[in-house]
């Protein structure tokens, strides 16, 4: 049995798929280097990431399968699920055989798995578009910390670029220590760590209070339904909100 190990980057995964094809090997699994457990009976092959090879695989996905397959693959990768690499590899292998109709072959477990991962990731990204909360800092920058389950920063950043082109903003994935910095039409996603209190703008407190009060008042008392609220907005997303959900249910 052969396992391919890549460095955890998207390009790394695509390189691994490239190598599997040209070495005429069928690795049992393709894993990211951070979830490898050593076993005696398995041969581990470490793959060196190569931009050029990755690009060739990417182009082959777009041209020989479909652009939406490329999206499926990228989103499934961003899920950071342990089996994502393997599922993507099998999905693509089938895809190069079937062409764009691979996305209809949902009875195939790997196709279904990739679709399921894609859906999870795009759902969280969609939810995050609403749940990001900016705080206006003294410096005039809008800062928003988030802690999403999946690595969706790259998916949501273009949305805010289009929406708020004239304000400088930072979206900070605290868990992954990544941040998207935006200023004047361009953004960059870079490793970023920050600890300590933020100097907020003087106006900021007032608007936060207004929002909190509004949030309290918009609920209809005779319909209070904390279960439904948590179903749409799981508690793990509450940490960086301005408003405080669930307070009326207690009283």
């Amino acid at each position: 049995m052969v396992y391919y190990i890549y460095d955890g980057s998207f390009e790394g995964l695509l390189t691994a798929i490239y190598e599997a094809y040209y070495r005429r090997e069928t690795p049992e699994k393709i894993l990211s280097s951070d979830n490898v457990q050593n076993s005696l009976f398995i041969k581990y092959v470490h793959i060196n990431t190569d931009q050029e090879k990755a690009q060739r695989v990417y182009d082959a996905i777009v041209q020989k399968i479909s652009p939406s397959a490329a999206k499926n693959v990228l989103y499934a990768f961003l899920s950071e699920a342990q089996d994502a690499g393997t599922a993507i590899y099998r999905y693509l292998k089938l895809g190069w055989k079937m062409g764009k109709s691979v996305d209809s072959a949902l009875a195939e477990p790997h196709v279904f798995r990739v679709h399921a991962l894609r859906k999870k990731v795009s759902q969280e990204a969609g939810k995050m578009l609403g749940l990001v909360r900016f705080r206006l800092l003294k410096s005039g920058v809008y800062y928003a910390p988030i802690e999403p389950d999946f690595n969706i920063l790259g998916i949501i950043a273009p949305h805010f670029k289009k929406r708020m082109p004239n304000q400088d903003w930072i979206i900070h994935d605290v868990k992954r220590k990544l941040a998207a910095f935006y200023s004047q039409g361009q953004y960059a996603i870079v490793p970023f760590e920050f600890k300590g209190a933020l100097p907020l703008d003087d106006e900021e407190f007032d608007y936060q209070t207004l929002w909190k009060e509004y949030f309290q008042n918009i609920a209809i008392k005779s319909r209070i339904n904390p279960r439904l609220q948590r179903q749409f907005m799981p508690v793990r997303y509450w940490k960086y909100l301005i408003e405080t959900p669930g307070t009326q249910a207690k009283s």
């Binding site: 209809i220 904390p226 609220q229 749409f232 909100l241 408003e243 959900p245």
Partner: peptide, 20 residues
């Protein structure tokens, strides 16, 4: 400032479970 999103975006859910 701003644009509209075709499928719509919910920003929060109030204590009665309705989207804001």
């Amino acid at each position: 400032l701003g644009n509209a999103s075709l499928p719509g975006i919910c920003h929060s859910w109030s204590d009665d479970g309705r989207c804001i």
